[in-house]
Design a protein around this nucleic acid. Structure first.
Lengths: 337, 337
DNA sequence: GCTGGCGATGTAACCGGTTTCAGGTAACCG
DNA sequence: CGGTTACCTGAAACCGGTTACATCGCCAGC
C-alpha cells in the first residue's frame, strides 16, 4: 500500500502539497501538481478512505435504510431494483457510495437507535430511507438526530430531512377520470394500509376525483387492504358480494390488482366488460397478465435520482430547508378497462 | 462525539484498557471491564469505525459488485431482491455491512480497475459479485488482485474466490424428465447466452438428459437467446416455423419463457395441449400468467446466505481454498405442461 | 528471602490522511 | 530601494482508534 508520505518523498515535496493536489488543486502550482499527478498514476497511489474520513469526518458514503417488514417476510418492494439502480448511478456521479445498513437482523442491541448508531460509527454523510410501512422508530430516530435524510414514500419533515413521493392523489384522480370516461358510475376502491402515506393519499385523491365528477361513494365501496396479492383477492371478493356491486374498481397497488383480477375471473366475471380494474404502480406483471392491467405508472427510476439529488443538495448545498419532491404519474391503458 | 480517550479519562484507566474491553475482553479484569462497559453505555460511546479501520486495515464492510448491463438498460435480475435480503441478513449476523460499489457510471477513470480501486480505498474485507453476463474485466481484476470474492452465477476460481450457483444442469434434467414423463419426444430448448455459466450449463444438462432418455436432438431445436422476454418470443417463433415443430420446449429462463408462451398463444396454439413449456427461475409472474408456467425453481435466498457464508468462511476461517456451492433446484409444475 | 512467572494495566508509536500556521520567494508599487 | 502583497510550499498537530512493549504487584516455589 503506497501512502501519501511515500508519494511525497518520491516527488520531493511535503505531504501537505500532495494532499492539496487531491483536495484543493487550484492552490498548488501547475508544474508540481502535474508532476505529482503523474507519479501518483504511475505508482498507483490511492488516498486511503478511512484516513480521510477520520480527518474530515466525511465518508462520502450514505446509508441505505431498507429493512424488510419482519411480520411479512415475503414482501417485495414493487420496484426496488429500479430505485437502486437509479440511486446508485446518481449518487456515484457525485462520488458517493451506498452502504446498506443492517435492520432488525443486525447483531447487537435493538433499541431503536440502530441506524443512528450505524451512521455515527461509519461517519455516514446521510441516509436514504425506503419505507416498508412499519413506522420503525429507528427510522424516525434518524431524522430526530439531524442526520441528512431523504425518505421514499414516507413523509418525514425536518431541518435535515425531506421525502420523495409520487403524486399519489393525482394518480388516483387519473384513474378515476379514466373510468368515468369509460362510462362507469359505480366505482369502488381497494386501498393500501391507510397508515402509509401512499395508501392514504391515493384514497384522498380517489375521493376527491369522485366528488369532482359528481359521483357518490358508498362506505362499502372502500375497502382497506394491505398491498399484497392475497389482500387484493380477499377485498375483491367482498366487493363482489355486495348488492350494489361496483362496475369498476380502482385498486391502489398492482400486486393487489392482480389478486383482484383473479378473484373477479374466478367469480366468472369478464374483465373489462363485467368489471373494470385500474391498478397503481405499473409493475412488470401488469403488462403480462391477460387482458393487461390498466394502471397508474410511477416514475420508478425517478425515485432514485430524485433522492440522490435531494441528498446531494442537502450535503453540498446551503442549509435552507429541503423541499419534498413529488413525481408525476401517468396513466397506462391496457385491457382491463 | 465522545472518544476513547474521553471514556478512558472518565474511567480513570488508559485508552489501551478501554480498547481491550471491546476487542479482547478476556484479558481485562472482570471488575474494570464492567465499569467501562457501564460508563460506555451511559455516555453512549461508540468506537469510530474509520479510526478502527485505519489501524486494523479491516473495515467489516464487503463490496457489492452489481453493475447493470450498459447495453441493456432495462435488464432486471430475476430475483435480486431476494438475494439482497438474504445477503444483508446473513452478513449483518456477522457484523458485516454491504457497500454497493459504483459501476460503469462511476466518477473517475474506467480502466478495468475500478472495483479493485474501490476495495483498496475503502479497505473492504471482500466482495460479492452478482453476474450481469457482461464478463466485465473489472470483475476479473478483483479476483486477480486476490480480493476475497464470492460470485453468483459466475464461475470464478482462485485462492481467494469461489462462486455460488444453482444446479443448472440438474435443473434442466428435471425439466426434461418431466416433459418425457408427460409423453413428449420432440423437445426443443431456448437457451440463455452460452457465454454465461447458467446459459451454458442448462444446455449441457438438457442435452445430457435428452440423451439419457434416448431421445434425439435436432440442431434446429436449440436456439440461443438472451434471457429477455423479447428474445424468448423471437426464438419461439423460429421454433414454430420449423417443419418438425417440437411438442415441448425447455426455456432456460422464465422471462424468456413468458415471451415464448405469448408467441405460442399468438400463433393460436394451446398450452399445454399443442405445445408444453417449462421455464427456469420461478419468478413471480410464472405463477400469475395463465395457464401458469411450470418451471425449475431456484433457491433464491439461498444465493444470499450461501454467499455470505462462503465469504465469512474465507475471512474468518482458514486459508484452505474455498469450495463452490451448488444449490439444488426443484421442479414446480403448473399449467403449462 | 529471592526469583520467576503470570495477570492486569499503562506508555507511546503508529495507521494515513487533513489543515492551520508559518515561512520563503518573486512581483509590484510608491 | 524598502515594503506590501500574492502565491506557493513545508512543519507539525490532529483525527480516534490499535497494539507492541514495558511495568508493576502478587503469589508460588525453592
Amino acid at each position: 500500500m503506497t501512502t501519501i508520505r511515500e508519494l511525497a518523498r518520491r516527488c520531493g515535496v511535503s505531504v501537505a502539497t500532495v494532499s492539496r493536489v487531491f483536495n484543493t488543486p487550484e492552490v498548488v502550482s501547475q508544474h508540481t501538481r502535474q508532476r505529482i499527478l503523474d507519479l501518483a498514476a504511475e505508482i498507483g497511489y490511492l488516498p486511503n478512505g478511512s484516513a480521510r474520513t477520520l480527518a474530515t469526518k466525511k465518508s462520502n458514503m450514505v446509508g441505505l435504510v431498507w429493512d424488510t417488514d419482519h411480520r411479512r417476510p415475503g414482501w417485495r418492494h414493487p420496484f426496488l431494483q429500479e430505485i437502486l439502480v437509479a440511486l446508485k448511478t446518481a449518487l456515484s456521479a457525485h462520488g458517493l457510495n451506498l452502504l446498506m445498513l443492517a435492520g432488525h437482523d443486525a447483531a447487537g442491541p435493538d433499541d431503536g437507535q440502530r441506524y443512528v448508531r450505524a451512521v455515527r460509527q461509519h461517519n455516514l454523510d446521510g441516509a436514504v430511507i425506503i419505507d416498508n410501512g412499519t413506522r420503525d422508530p429507528a427510522v424516525l430516530a434518524l431524522v430526530e438526530a439531524q442526520v441528512p435524510c431523504v425518505a421514499l414514500d414516507l413523509r418525514v419533515d425536518g431541518p435535515t430531512s425531506t421525502y420523495i413521493t409520487s403524486d399519489n392523489a393525482g394518480g388516483a384522480a387519473l384513474a378515476v377520470r379514466h373510468l368515468v370516461e369509460r362510462g362507469h358510475r359505480r366505482i369502488a376502491t381497494i386501498t393500501g394500509p391507510l397508515r402509509t402515506w401512499p395508501g392514504a393519499e391515493r384514497l384522498v385523491g380517489f375521493r376527491a376525483a369522485l366528488a369532482g365528477a359528481g359521483l357518490p361513494l358508498a362506505d362499502s365501496h372502500v375497502i382497506e387492504a394491505d398491498f399484497y396479492l392475497d389482500g387484493g383477492h380477499a377485498a375483491m371478493n367482498r366487493l363482489l358480494a355486495l348488492d350494489d356491486r361496483p362496475t369498476a374498481v380502482f385498486v391502489a397497488g398492482d400486486e393487489m390488482a392482480v389478486g383482484a383480477m383473479r378473484a373477479a375471473q374466478a367469480a366468472g366475471l369478464r374483465i373489462p366488460d363485467d368489471i373494470a380494474i385500474v391498478g397503481f404502480d405499473d409493475i412488470e406483471v401488469a403488462a403480462l397478465i391477460p387482458p393487461g392491467l390498466s394502471t397508474v405508472a410511477q416514475n420508478k427510476p425517478g425515485f432514485g435520482t430524485a433522492a440522490a439529488e435531494a441528498l446531494v443538495a442537502m450535503l453540498h448545498g446551503g442549509d435552507d430547508p429541503p423541499k419534498p419532491t413529488v413525481l408525476p404519474t401517468t396513466l397506462v391503458v391496457r385491457g382491463s378497462t
